[in-house]
């Protein structure tokens, strides 16, 4: 005959045992008053736990949370706008530099060849030289400083906007 313990009775309550074992336990419970009491107590705890009510959050929980959700969406949009603005600024600066170089080249270049390929090669070589001159030793430090300054300013504002959105 099997000896009933809490582990077996818990499995019996959850229906985790095979049919044969279930039958054996049932018989044992019917024959032993003490085991039956033990089983009924465990079953009562199980039933009481089923009836246990859920804790309740404060009444304004959902509305407060939805406000936070809306704010997070807004701050995400603001962040995206900020990133796009910074990238656009960079793009415009780059376009400005290249535009300046091209304009400078067009106004200073003198057409001396009629062949298209030769003309293109010459123009490319001239343009590369111009670029080299522009990014020469003297200028590179100035350009680097300007870019670093812009990066620092953008980084600061980006960090500040992130901090601001987190605080919200």
């Amino acid at each position: 005959m099997i000896e009933l313990n809490d582990d077996l009775l818990n499995k019996y309550i959850d229906g985790e045992l095979d049919r044969e074992m279930m039958e054996q336990i049932k018989e044992k419970l019917e024959s032993s008053h003490q085991d039956m009491m033990k089983y009924r107590m465990l079953l009562s705890v199980h039933n009481e736990l089923k009836k246990m009510p859920a804790e309740e959050v404060s009444s304004s929980f959902t509305s407060n949370l939805m406000l936070k959700v809306q704010r997070s969406l807004k701050s995400k949009r603001e962040q995206n706008f900020f990133i796009v603005s910074v990238l656009s600024l960079f793009f415009l600066i780059c376009v400005g530099i290249i535009g300046y170089l091209i304009a400078n080249y067009i106004f200073t270049a003198q057409p001396n060849s009629s062949d298209v390929v030769t003309q293109f090669t010459e123009h490319s070589e001239d343009f590369i030289t111009l670029l080299k001159n522009f990014f020469s030793k003297g200028n590179i430090s100035i350009i680097g400083s300007v870019f670093s300054f812009i990066l620092l300013i953008s980084g600061y504002f980006f960090y500040d906007s992130l901090k601001h959105s987190k605080q919200e």
Binding site: D6, N10, M41, L42, V45, H46, E48
Partner: peptide, 20 residues
Amino acid sequence: HRSRSALKDIMIKNNYSEEL
């Protein structure tokens, strides 16, 4: 299972057997 058994034991110790 352990939680259930523990709760049952606490109930018995605190004279809740009849209610159970």
